[in-house]
Amino acid sequence: MTSALIADGLTKRYGRRTALSDCTLDIPAGHVVGLVGPNGAGKSTLLQLACGLLDPTTGRIEALGERPVSGSPRVGFVAQDTPVYAGLTVAEHLRMGAHLNPSWDAGLADRRIAQVGLDPAQKAGKLSGGQRAQLALTVAAAKRPDLLLLDEPVAALDPLARRNFLQGLMELTVEQGMSIIMSSHLVADLERVCDHLVLLVGSRVRVAGDVDDLLAGHHRLVGPRREPAEVGSGRHVVEQSHTDVQSTLIVRSTAPIDDPAWQVDRLGLEDIVLAYMSGPGGQR
C-alpha cells in the first residue's frame, strides 16, 4: 500500500516560534483520515506543508511520493476558514477552477452546487460560513485530486451544516475514490466519516491506526486499586487514575481482557483520543 503522506523529522519554524518540531508519520493512501490534536499541535502547519503552501525548515515531507509543490494537480487543499473570493460569484469560482485545472470535472462541480443548494449567481462574499465551506470543497473536489487535504473544514459550521458537509465528503470518497486527510478537534465528527485516525500532540504522533482497530484495541478497566505494572504483558496503559481503593485504567491491548478482577468497558473514539491527550506524554 502506498502512502498518502510521509513526514520524516519534519520541522517548521516561524522565526523563533516552532509550529511543528521533528514530526515523523506515515499516513496510508485510500482512506479518509482524521488528523486530530489539541490546538497548537501543528495540524494546520502539517497540512500546509503537505500541499506545498509552506516549505519545511528541516526534515522531509512527501505527498503521494512526491515533494509537495503548490500548483500540483494531484493534491487538493481547502484551507482553514475556507477562503473564497468575495467579489466573485459561485459560478465564477467554478469557471476559475475550470480554467486553472486541466483535470476539472465540470459535471461534478455543477451537480454538487445544485445539490447543496447554492445559487450560481450569488457573490461568494454573501455566502454563509457553511455555504462558503461547501463552495471551497466543491472547487477542491472538482479538481479531482488523488489526495484531498481539508484543514478544519467544519469548524465554523452549525451542526446541520456540518452533517451536510460530511455527507458530501463521504459521497465524494465513494464516487471518486480519493484519499482524504482532514484535521479537526471535533472527534465526534471524525468518527462518523473517518476510517483512519492520527492523533498529533505537540508535533508527535501519539497514536495512529484504523478506527475499527483503535476501538477494538482500547479498554477501560475499573477495579480494586493496583499498580499499572500489574495489568500484564502485551498491554499498554494509556491513562490511569486512582482513588484510595479503586483504579481506573485506559489500556491498549490487541488481545481481549478477561481478568475477572477488572470490570472491562469498551471505549468511544473520543474517550480514546482524550485519554491519549491527557495521559503521560500527552501534555507538553
Binding site: 503548490s70 500548483g71 484551507a79 477562503p83 473570493y85 468575495a86
Partner: peptide
C-alpha cells in the same frame, strides 16, 4: 484575505 491558499491549491504554480 487568505485567498492565496485557494488559488495556489489549483493546478497552477505560484510562479506562473
Amino acid at each position: 484575505t487568505g485567498t492565496y491558499r485557494m488559488v495556489f491549491s489549483q493546478s497552477v504554480g505560484r510562479g506562473r
